[in-house]
């Protein structure tokens, strides 16, 4: 089990750094899809048949939504808004990669702080989840394009999903499904919002949204 988790961890880090350093939005959406499928597998690896159909349902739902559904929705939105690139993010791509390295250190440190209290959670997954949350937050803050902000939100969501899977073993199914439903509706609502913003402003660069102050 741990060897597999190490692999997931490594590939997860790779996808995060790819998201931090890529300007083409289409490529970012594909990395996001890869990440969704990758971390959707975690419940299956962690529980190894212990929770049977529940783990399968959870993994299946996540992979279907985050690996396939959301990326397709985002690709359609990208086509409609006719944006291909994050042109000039608020923080440059080189600095973003440097942030990634810093965040990696921070997540390892936080994990070692939290680990004694969460003794049953595998170290690498705890590390992954905190790193995903940090990278997701950073993408939301540092990118101009509304689609990239949604991607950041989904990276954050992935991190929280992993955290939930490894820390709280017996979460009721209803709660898990509710969380998944909220993520679904959330992305859907953001999609409609982007559609309206694009129609009204002729662009989905959020630095145009700056009339309200004070």
């Amino acid at each position: 089990m741990f060897a597999l988790l190490e692999t997931v961890h490594a590939l997860g880090l790779l996808s995060c750094f790819a998201l931090l350093g890529t300007s083409r939005i289409g490529a970012c959406i594909r990395w996001l899809s890869f990440q969704g499928i990758l971390f959707g597998l975690v419940p299956l690896i962690v529980h190894q048949g212990g929770l049977g159909w529940r783990a399968a349902l959870l993994a299946g739902g996540n992979i279907a939504l985050k690996g396939i559904g959301f990326p397709l929705l985002l690709l359609r939105l990208r086509a409609r808004a006719e944006t291909n690139r994050e042109v000039e993010p608020f923080v440059s791509f080189v600095m973003s990669i440097l942030f990634g390295i810093f965040a990696l250190g921070l997540s390892v440190w936080l994990t070692s702080e939290l680990k004694p209290a969460l003794h049953q959670a595998p170290f690498v997954m705890l590390d992954s989840s905190i790193f995903l949350i940090l990278v997701g937050l950073f993408l939301i803050i540092s990118r101009r394009n509304a689609l990239m902000q949604v991607i950041g939100y989904l990276v954050l969501e992935n991190g929280i999903f992993v955290f939930g899977v490894i820390t709280v073993v017996g979460t009721p199914l209803l709660v898990e499904l509710g969380v998944l439903l909220d993520a679904f509706v959330g992305v859907f609502v953001m999609g409609i919002a982007i559609y309206h913003i694009n129609r009204e402003f002729g662009s989905i660069e959020v630095d145009r949204l700056s009339a309200l102050k004070g």
Binding site: L156, G186, H196, I197, L212
Partner: peptide, 19 residues
């Protein structure tokens, strides 16, 4: 334009908060 701006900020900031 203004209400869309307010709504986008509300969505993003509150989604992070709720996360």
């Amino acid at each position: 334009r203004l209400s869309l701006e307010a709504m986008w900020k509300y969505l993003i900031i509150c989604s992070i908060g709720i996360a």
